[in-house]
Computed example of a mutant assay.
Amino acid sequence: MEKKRTAIIWICCFMLLWSCKKDYQHYSGPEGVYFGVRYDGHINDQDGPYQSSTHIEFMKLGLQQMDLQIPVLITGASKSYDRVFKISVVADSTTAVPAVHYQELNRQYIMPAYSNGCLVPLRLFCAPDLDTIERRLVLQLDETEDFVGAFSSWDPPLDITGHHPAQKFDATRHTIYLNNIMVKPNQWLGSVLENGEEFNALGAFTRRKMDFITERLGVSYADFASPSSMSVIRIGLISQQLSKILIERFNAGDPVLEEDGRLMYAGQVPWKSYVGIPWKK
């Protein structure tokens, strides 16, 4: 009986493998290309295995330029020879400027022989205007003699819970969002009262204050991202050091001002600072 059961299992496995092999041999879909971008190179079940966009935040990266590698994958079997695909910029949807925010694309790219995909390099620049506004760069895969655009209405597969993790999107397009906007980090200890008065260790968060701390104390914006790099004790020490510098500058007749003209604040300074109200000598 045991031998019979084993034989049945082997037959079932053989039939399953043969079925898969047979389906693969009879694949007749179009030979196409699509963007196979995944966050951090991994599948995120909440967003789907392929993403329609990439967000580049230079401030968090601490970079002035970066080389992004964009995965382009194929449908159909690989070939024994190189093939050509093209990527263009969708002008009416793009706000990024060539040579300012990104390096212009090549006229065409090569899908290497015996490969199912490749990485397209794209150099991105942290231009000054990204400090205050976000730019977008929309890329489009164009048809060539070798490839058509695949999955123009990509429906992400079910996630592990049995639900669709993302909305349908066009996998022949990919949008890259660029910014260098500085927002209040998680570990910033300070805020503003209802009357506009700054309080606590560091007071209101401003870009000017963060830049001043980085320049004078060697503390980076990224350091404020998590408790592991910025403890409450460390914040207290930063507040003391910053207060000392601000007091010294004030006593020397060269006070440090915020953009609205108020005195820069830290927890141990003897003055009060109100957002929007300039300091008067």
Rank of each mutant, 00 (worst) to 15 (best):
T172L: 03
S88A: 15
S273E: 06
K280L: 06
G117I: 07
S152V: 11
G162Q: 12
Q187G: 08
Q65F: 06
F224Q: 12
S191N: 13
T214K: 14
G36V: 06
I110Y: 05
V183A: 10
T6G: 10
K281W: 07
D170C: 03
K184Y: 07
I43Y: 05
P30H: 03
I74L: 03
P270I: 13
P98V: 15
N116K: 02
T172G: 02
G203P: 06
I110H: 04
L237H: 09
P157Q: 04
E31K: 04
Y177C: 06
Y265A: 12
P98F: 11
M111W: 00
P278A: 11
R216V: 07
G76N: 08
Q167H: 13
Q241T: 05
N180L: 09
L158F: 08
P157S: 12
E194C: 06
Q187V: 06
R216Q: 14
L217F: 11
R107P: 02
D254M: 13
S228Y: 00
Q65R: 14
H163P: 01
Q268C: 08
P165M: 13
G196T: 11
Q64R: 09
I87V: 15
Y24K: 00
C126K: 14
E2Y: 06
V100C: 05
P98D: 13
D47R: 13
L202Y: 01
G41M: 13
Y81N: 09
F250P: 03
L105C: 07
G276W: 03
Q268N: 12
S239I: 02
L73K: 01
G162F: 08
A96R: 06
G62H: 05
G196L: 07
A91I: 14
W279L: 00
Y114N: 15
P165Y: 04
F224D: 12
F58W: 03
L68I: 11
S88G: 15
V269R: 01
Q69P: 01
G253T: 12
L217I: 09
D142K: 00
E134S: 15
L202M: 11
S52H: 03
I56P: 07
H164Q: 09
V232D: 09
K244D: 14
L68W: 14
G196Q: 09
W10E: 04
R136S: 08
V33R: 05
E197L: 08
D254T: 15
E57L: 12
M182E: 03
G190A: 09
Q69G: 08
F14L: 15
T54K: 04
E31A: 02
C126I: 01
K79Q: 13
A113L: 10
E215H: 10
K79I: 06
R123Q: 12
G149F: 06
L242N: 09
W154I: 07
T144Q: 01
S152L: 09
T75R: 07
R5L: 12
F199N: 07
Q69R: 10
V183F: 08
